[in-house]
Amino acid sequence: MTSPDCILETRGLEKRFGGVVAIASVDFTLKQRELRCLIGPNGAGKSTFFKMLTAQLKPTTGRILFDGVDITRAQPHHVSRLGIGIKNQVPDVFNNLTVAENISVAARSRHGKARAGAKGKDVMERLGLTALTGRLVGELAHGQRQWVELAMVVALEPKLILLDEPAAGMTADETNKTAELILEVNKSAAIVVVEHDMQFIKQIAQTVTVFHQGRVLIEDTMEKVQGNELVREVYLGKSEDD
């Protein structure tokens, strides 16, 4: 049985694409309101892992338990209703709708008209999107579209938020703001963040999980992870050189 303070647990989770093993037997647990950073080189399987957690991909084998419910074979909308929100790696928004409409669609998934309106307004203010409400999302810069997607996820008020490279394509200033937002949202939700930007990771990291070739290489504090020889070899070594 899952312990009550555990919000997410995967057991022997595996995903193969034909001959390619993208995720190989991952056992992963996350506590309520934990903030976890997930790192690893390109192709390590981070995005695939997130997609299985949100039912965008069906696992080949293994189980996923969320808040005591087995969601291994659930539908994406069902997983969302249970309380998992995700920002995908590639901006995943409604390009031909306005910023306000994007956020309204998200907020109204959970709330009635009045509360959704208030929630949407609040989220747009917090993310500094108020000036953009009437703009079509497809016309915005990459970084701004990332914000819109973040705002949609926050408006859902999920119990678990998965962020796949939220700071990619952002300026240093925007990255800082993203980190602050994550820490704030973390007061009420568990979060898993995938990022390559080490400055950013250091800013928010508590426990760090390192994926390599579809497996968990190590899971520890940021200092321990940075000091680890194996990690330096497969990942950090490379990024600190450049």
Partner: peptide
Amino acid sequence: NERRAELLG
């Protein structure tokens, strides 16, 4: 965007 709509529930 069908997938996004589903991820919103």
